[in-house]
Structures are given as structure tokens and as C-alpha cells.
């Protein structure tokens, strides 16, 4: 167990460096974009004088590195700053939207992960059969389409044609859990279609890889049923690659929902990020970007810890 803790500690330190680097890259990226928040907000009434005055008020006239370190100092102290565009606190803007994003991603994951693992197990069990080919073809077709395409197909079928699910996933805090789930079902299904193929293929490949081992033949020669062999003998030894792919896809669910949120007009973090980038609203972009980066890093760390724990060799201390 000791080396697991040491690994986690090392990785957390490395994550801090990663996240700092990400913040610098986001800052430079926004700087490089033409125009700034003053011009965008003022719009039609942007005379050189008003723009200059507005920039001074937002402290945009200071050199970039000064602004970056001011932001960093405040951020470290827990002050995420205020939106440049409307002056509201970044924490207030992001908080509930992030919760919404996590809700959508979580729902999609709750459908996709068990579905992918079960399909992967079945595909390995009936390897090279019609069933195996059918799920491989179906899931791979879904992954090959762009997300918005799948989203519009689902809308066309379930909202327009049959009118069973809403095409706008506008949830509000007043809704109950079931109503919320009903409202976001289409975006959640879209996301499921996108991430299932990858996880299912990896589960299938990892299990088939293990099936060639001598201990699987041994289990066969002990007269154990095929399904039990796959679930009890093969899967535990195939977990490590499966966990890693699941973590990558979960991270993608949180980070990559932008397009789906836009299509379904879902009030999540992705929507906010897109709006803020077009307004050059740096504090909001920074905070959202860092939340995404932290999600990625945390999920990957979690995957490494779990795959270490799944291996008795690494789990034990001597």
C-alpha cells in the first residue's frame, strides 16, 4: 500500500505543474485572439475613448505577465475573480453549470460504462460470431459519425417523428430527479453512442488477450463454464487496460460535452465556455479550462490507482 500512496503523492505534485501549464496556455491563447472584451462588450458604441476608459477600468492596460500573475495570486487565494463581461462572480457563474455538466456526464456514464463492459464481455464470449460482428459494426458506426449528427438524428426520430422526448434539454432546479432525467435523455444517449464503442472494443480485446493464457486453459480443464471463466478468471486480469479506457472516456464525457450542450441548449459548463471565449472573458475561460484540466488529471490518477489495486502483485506490501 505504501508505494500506492507514494505514487499518488508524486502524481498530485505533477498534476499541479500540469494545471499551471494549462493556465499559462489558456492565457496566451486568449491573448492571441483578435479583439478583447472591451471591444466586444461595447460593440457599436466602441469609440477609441470609451474602449480606452473601459480597458483601464478592467485593468486590461497592464502588461500581460502582470495580469497573469495578479490573476494567479487571487486564484491561489480562492478568489476566482469576476466576469469581465458582466461583472458577476466567476464562482457564481460556474458553480451550478458545472453541476449540470456533471449531472449530464454522470447520466451518460451510468448508461455507457455498464453497457460497454457487458457488450465487451458478450463479444468476447461469442467471439467472431454474428453477434460479435453486429455489435462491433454498430458501435463503430456510431463513433464514426460526428456528435452533432447523432444528436440531430436522435432529435429527428424521438422528438420530431414520435414526439416522445424533448429536443431542448433545458432543465431547471425546480424539476424532480425523474423529470430531469427525462429531459436530458437525448443528450445523454448521444454521449453514450459516442463513448461506448471505444470502451466496448477495449474490454473485448483485453479479455480475448487474457483468454490465451495458460490459466484460462486450466480453468477450462477444471470443467468450469465459459461465462464464469470470462467473468471470474479473465476479467480481473483484464481490468487494468479497461479501467484506463473508461477513465479516458469519462474525462471526455465531462470535457467533450460542449457540442452536445450547444445542440440541446443545455445549461452546462460547455455552453458557458463557448460564450466566454467569444466574449474574450478571460477569468471565466480560465476557471472553466482549469476545471476541465483538473477533471482530466483526477480521472487519470484514479484510473492508475484502481488498476494498481486490481493487481495483487502491486496491491500488497512486503
Amino acid at each position: 500500500m505504501k508505494h500506492v500512496f507514494r505514487m499518488v503523492l508524486k502524481r498530485i505534485l505533477a498534476s499541479v505543474v500540469t494545471i499551471l501549464t494549462v493556465s499559462v496556455i489558456i492565457f496566451i491563447g486568449v491573448e492571441l485572439l483578435p479583439g478583447d472584451v472591451a471591444e466586444t462588450v461595447l460593440g457599436q458604441s466602441a469609440t477609441p475613448e470609451t474602449v480606452k476608459a473601459f480597458r483601464k477600468e478592467l485593468k486590461l492596460d497592464l502588461p500581460p505577465h502582470v495580469r497573469y500573475f495578479t490573476w494567479l495570486r487571487n486564484f491561489v487565494q480562492g478568489d476566482f475573480g469576476n466576469s469581465l463581461a458582466n461583472g458577476r462572480s466567476v464562482a457564481g457563474l460556474i458553480g451550478w453549470r458545472f453541476a449540470n455538466t456533471i449531472f449530464l456526464a454522470g447520466t451518460a456514464a451510468a448508461i455507457a460504462v455498464p453497457l460497454a463492459v457487458i457488450l465487451g464481455i458478450l463479444a468476447a464470449l461469442y467471439r467472431n460470431s454474428l453477434f460479435d460482428n453486429a455489435i462491433s459494426t454498430t458501435t463503430l458506426s456510431f463513433i464514426s459519425f460526428p456528435e452533432f449528427f447523432i444528436a440531430y438524428i436522435l432529435i429527428a426520430v424521438f422528438s420530431v417523428q414520435f414526439n416522445v422526448f424533448p429536443s431542448l434539454a433545458s432543465i431547471s432546479p425546480r424539476m424532480g430527479l425523474w423529470e430531469k432525467l427525462y429531459t436530458i435523455l437525448l443528450p445523454a444517449l448521444t454521449l453514450t453512442c459516442i463513448v461506448t464503442a471505444h470502451m466496448m472494443r477495449q474490454t473485448r480485446a483485453a479479455i480475448i488477450n487474457v483468454l490465451a493464457s495458460a490459466y484460462i486453459e486450466m480453468a477450462d480443464l477444471k470443467g468450469i463454464r465459459r461465462l464464469r471463466i470470462i467473468i471470474l478468471h479473465a476479467l480481473p486480469n483484464a481490468l487494468s487496460p479497461v479501467i484506463n479506457v473508461i477513465a479516458l472516456n469519462l474525462a471526455y464525457l465531462v470535457v467533450g460535452v460542449v457540442i452536445v450542450e450547444v445542440v440541446f441548449v443545455y445549461p452546462g459548463l460547455g455552453q458557458l465556455l463557448v460564450d466566454s471565449v467569444s466574449k474574450r472573458d478571460l477569468p471565466v475561460v480560465q476557471a472553466s479550462g482549469l476545471i476541465f484540466a483538473a477533471t482530466y488529471v483526477t480521472l487519470n490518477l484514479l484510473a492508475d490507482v484502481l488498476s494498481m489495486l486490481s493487481n495483487p502483485r502491486l496491491r500488497q506490501t512486503h
Binding site: 480443464l221 470443467g223 493487481n311
Partner: peptide, 24 residues
Amino acid sequence: LRSIRGTRIAYVAQSAAASFNPSH
């Protein structure tokens, strides 16, 4: 065949290190 394997006739493999499941 499953019903006799292990119970009526059993197998001892060449490499025990490879034939024991490392997870159990």
C-alpha cells in the same frame, strides 16, 4: 465434458506459475 473435467479426470500443467490465475 465439463462434468467430467476436474472431477473424473484432472490436469497438471507444465508451468504452474502460468497456470495459476494471478488474481485469485
